[in-house]
Design a protein around this nucleic acid. Structure first.
Length: 271
DNA sequence: CCGGACGCCTGTCGGC
DNA sequence: TGCCGACAGGCGTCCG
């Protein structure tokens, strides 16, 4: 579900709402997520203070006492403040804060991740270790992409979604980025010119930055910590617009599966 | 090493 | 109304 703009929006909400809060108690209601939640997770963080909430790729990193809690939202994970003490279906973990509020992790499909590492040691964990460059960092450059793409035949859309190359881009933003860059999603990466990579870098930064500014994209489940929907849905140019007119040229938007995922593009605007 | 298919799990939606 | 298949914002594993 959530890509970088959604995870970053959640991070900002958590950082505002949570920094300095003390966790009175932790309830772990289900351990069988994508990988089992460590047995000792609840006792390790109960009674501790949340000092920061950081993000790496699509992972949220909560610095709590001597530990860092690593959380991935998978397709349907969410962190929200519960308005009442009534649990709803798929509430797997909750923090009762000393000020009376309660923060809940809910994930119907259980593709999410909750695990613990020593404070600040996430970079060497198997989840984080092999991740590629942050797209909003100075290391995300046309040269770096061209070097990684050299000799490869993957479609550019799959390449942009490969978290070992560049992190945070998922199925929605991959289509949006390539539309803005005027490049077809099926183009083989080894044959894209340096100026093509330049377009991709610029488009990626622009799309992600604007999407963060709009609080992300809500298609169905996604909600920010405060329950707000992402407003970038109104600015999607191609995603979920099969057979509707391209906003640039009025030709019908094309759609087909690439890499097993729904992909949208304009066959006139994108080459 | 690379690229592509598949499975994980639950909910929803459209067609019949 | 009910059933059934397809599909959903991610990612790890397996196979050729």
């Amino acid at each position: 579900m959530p890509e970088l703009p959604e995870v970053e929006t959640i991070r900002q909400g958590l950082a505002e709402q949570l920094a300095g809060s003390r966790i009175r108690a932790v309830q772990l209601r289900r351990r069988d997520l994508r990988v089992p939640v460590p047995r000792g997770l609840a006792s390790a963080i109960a009674g501790q203070t949340v000092e920061a909430v950081r993000r790496r790729a699509k992972y949220l990193l909560f610095d709590i006492g001597k530990h860092t809690l690593i959380s991935h939202l998978g397709m349907t994970g969410s962190w929200t403040f519960a308005s009442s003490k009534n649990y709803v279906k798929h509430d797997h973990l909750s923090f009762q804060l000393t000020d009376g509020r309660e923060l809940v992790f809910n994930d119907p499909r259980r593709f999410g991740l909750l695990t613990l590492v020593d404070r600040g040691e996430e970079a060497t964990s198997p989840w984080i270790r092999d991740l590629g460059v942050e797209p909003l960092s100075p290391e995300f450059t046309p040269d770096a992409l061209q070097r990684l793409a050299k000799g490869r035949t993957v479609p550019v859309k799959n390449f942009l979604m490969d978290q070992r190359v560049v992190v945070g881009i998922g199925n929605i933003y991959a289509s949006e980025i390539l539309h803005r860059a005027r490049i077809r999603p099926s183009r083989r990466v080894g044959r894209i010119s340096l100026s093509g990579w330049g377009e991709i870098v610029e488009s990626t930064r622009e799309i992600l930055r604007r999407a963060i500014g709009q609080g992300g994209t809500t298609l169905r489940n996604y909600r920010a910590v405060d329950g707000e929907s992402g407003r970038f849905k109104n600015q999607l140019m191609v995603y979920d617009r099969a057979n509707l007119p391209c906003f640039t040229c009025s030709v019908e938007i094309s759609a087909r599966a690439i890499g097993g995922r729904s992909t949208y593009w304009c066959k006139v605007c994108q080459k």
